[in-house]
Amino acid sequence: MVEIKGVIPAILTPMKEDESVNYDELRNQLNRLIDGGVHGIFPFGTNGEGYILREDEKMEILKVTVDEVKGRVPVYAGTGCIGTKDTVRQSLKAKEAGADILSIIAPSFAMASQDELYEHYKTVAFEVDMPIVLYNIPARTNNSISPDTVERLSEIPNIVGVKDSSGNFDNMLQYIEKTRGNENFSVLSGNDSLILWNLLAGGVGGIAGCANIYPGTLASIYDLFMAGELEQARKAQDSIRNIRNTFKYGNPNTMVKTAVGLMGYLVGKCRAPFNKVSDQGVEALKKALAENEALGMK
């Protein structure tokens, strides 16, 4: 089974002016991130605008990703839908397209009980013979996967991990505590600011939007930690603070994509209506990028 570890970019989806996917630039970004030392690739997650891509676009993005990555790192595919049957269907398509691991976001919009969430994930796991990572992001879905539910789900053999994007460190800590005895289950941070703290608590790394901007720096948090160089790992973790401080000016996905565009890459804008950054936000990004360039961040 594929080992879940390290820093995995939730890779952005490059787009042309007409909002169609720019597959040539996608291949360019994939190689840039892998050359930067990242430990996996996660297309069409939240940062990849999976919420606004059509199903056929997702599958084509996944096929191109698998083709370009060529097994150099594991490929994660976000296949979660509101309905259980749709999630199974998309997951089977992702398996056919060559994904290594499924990331399945909690159902959204309608409130779900913990028993309903458990049955949802259990059904998908039984129908799709692939490693599955649960994805908890209650601010976007209105449904939170409780630590007790994660503990129950971790007993299903092919549910192998959870990504926590709640921003609540105690919630992530409880995920780690509840599953510590299961050596086949991993906990990832979905918050870029908590990657090192996830590792210190017993987690395995993070799925990171900011790795689109600085793949080398983000990947080094994990590498330095594993090498026992904790002070250097902390410095790498702290170094993204000025970029994250710009997120107050807009949707984090939009800010990350704008930052990568300002670095000279042809990634385009996010799809409307989520494609506006104020002049103040652009200036804040330029300032942070210049500061980090002077520090040699990559």
Rank of each mutant, 00 (worst) to 15 (best):
V2D: 09
E3P: 07
I4Y: 03
G6T: 02
I8F: 06
A10Q: 08
M15F: 14
E19Q: 13
N22E: 02
E25G: 04
E25T: 13
R27L: 04
R27D: 04
Q29F: 03
L30D: 09
L30T: 05
N31K: 11
G36V: 00
F42S: 14
F42M: 08
F42Q: 06
P43W: 02
F44L: 09
G45W: 06
N47S: 10
G48Y: 11
G50V: 01
G50E: 13
I52A: 15
L53T: 00
L53S: 01
E55S: 13
E57K: 05
M59V: 10
L62N: 13
T65Q: 11
E68N: 01
V69A: 08
V73F: 08
P74Y: 06
V75C: 01
A77W: 00
T79P: 07
T84L: 05
T84C: 04
T84P: 02
S91F: 00
L92H: 04
L92A: 01
L92S: 00
K93I: 03
E96A: 03
G98K: 05
G98F: 04
D100T: 05
I105T: 13
A110K: 12
A110N: 12
A112T: 10
Q114W: 08
E116W: 09
K122F: 06
T123E: 10
V124E: 09
V124Y: 09
A125M: 01
E127Q: 14
D129T: 04
D129Q: 10
L134Y: 06
N136A: 12
I137M: 13
P138M: 07
P138S: 07
A139T: 12
R140V: 11
T141M: 06
S146V: 01
R152P: 11
R152M: 09
N158F: 01
V162D: 10
D164W: 04
S166G: 15
N168G: 05
N171T: 12
L173P: 04
L173N: 14
E177D: 11
T179L: 02
T179F: 02
R180S: 09
V187A: 02
S189C: 00
S193T: 15
L194K: 11
L196H: 08
W197K: 15
L199V: 00
L200M: 15
V204Y: 07
G205K: 03
G209F: 06
C210V: 15
N212F: 00
Y214R: 13
P215K: 14
Y222G: 13
K235L: 07
I240D: 03
T246W: 04
T246N: 05
Y249D: 04
Y249I: 04
N253E: 15
T258V: 03
V260S: 01
G268N: 07
R271Q: 13
G281A: 08
V282D: 05
K286S: 01
A290P: 05
E291K: 14
A294G: 14
L295R: 14
M297D: 12
